[in-house]
Each structure stands twice: as C-alpha cells, then as structure tokens.
Amino acid sequence: MAETDDKTGPPVTLIEPIDMTKLDPNFRKEIQNMPDGDEVNACFACSTCTAACPIANQWKYKPHQLIRMILLGMREEVLSSREIWECLTCFQCQERCPQGVRVTDIIFDLRDLASEEGKIPDAVKFLAKELLEKGQLYVVTADWEREDLDLEPEVPGLSTDEFKEILKRTRTGKIAGGE
C-alpha cells in the first residue's frame, strides 16, 4: 500500500464543501411536484444509477450526485449543468434503481425547468426553431426514393399546420421566437 507523504491537505475522500447560503430548500419539493418526481426522496445514494450509466465517466456530476444535489437544494448547479442535456435518456439508471426513483424521467423534468428559465443549449434551441418552422422534425427530400418503392411522394396523413399552431402557443414558441 502506498503511503501519502502530504498530510496537510484534506482527506481525498472529501468533496468540496457545499456553500450552504446558496441552497434552495424548495428545490426538492419543486422536483417532487413535477410529473416524475414522486419517489425522489427515496434515493439512498447507492449510486447504482451511476454504475448503469454508459457515459458517467465523463461527467463532473454523476447521476447519483445529481439526485443528491436535488435533495440538498443545489438548484443553480443542477439546472446549469451540461450533464442534464448530455444524458442519453437510455433509462438504464432508472431501470436499475432499487428505490424506484425515476432518474431519467427526472432528468427530463430538469431540462423542462431549465428551459423555463431559458437555459437551453444552442443546438437544442435550433431544433425548437426547426420544429416550429417545418412543423415536423424530418422533411422528405428524396421523393424519388419513395416512388421507387411505390410509396406516396409525401407522407400520407402527416399534417404540419396544427403542430405549428399548438407549439406557437406553448413554450416552444417563446424559445424559438424569443431572440
């Protein structure tokens, strides 16, 4: 076993102290009241979610830490983190959580909260604009390919007007129009 020469610093197992003045005690309640937050309090920080996450290695805040940060009230750090937007939403953490915490769904809720405050990555903001302009995500460009396969050149039944109409009035409209 290697011995540490430097005995002056804090033990390496300790994380940075949390600035208590910045904590938002209501954050936990806020998440609990969102569509998937019912079970968030049940987290006992076993970090099974982190073990299941295929990309946790590159994150500063691991999935179990994000949940812990919610419970502690670290609202600003969580909602500004790049982690909530890089989550693959593969649901492996949620599937394995022994406490029934809907970890991935909660990350979706966190994005929704961040979006309400305008904290959205540019690439996602761009997608919002695209959705609003086109009324769909992908538009048929190679209609000859479709015709070769005896398919209608346009997608049968897909209507874009109502989609645009709805999203213009909801938050997407604000995000895409609020430049």
């Binding site: 569509p35 979706f108 997608l127 009324g135 039944g157 897909l158 109502e162 997407t172 995000i175």
Partner: peptide, 27 residues
Amino acid sequence: YMEGVACCGSPNLRAIDYFGWLLVNAR
C-alpha cells in the same frame, strides 16, 4: 395511415416544452 396527425416532436420536445409535447401527442 392516420389522417391529419402531427410529428411526435422527438424527446427534445419533451425536454424543452413538456406541455406542448403532451398536447401534440395527445392529439
């Protein structure tokens, strides 16, 4: 083929506009 239906918006729409996403898919 369903008539007059809209795009589902993808998981990105769920992320940025939960209610809008509910509405288009509920429709």
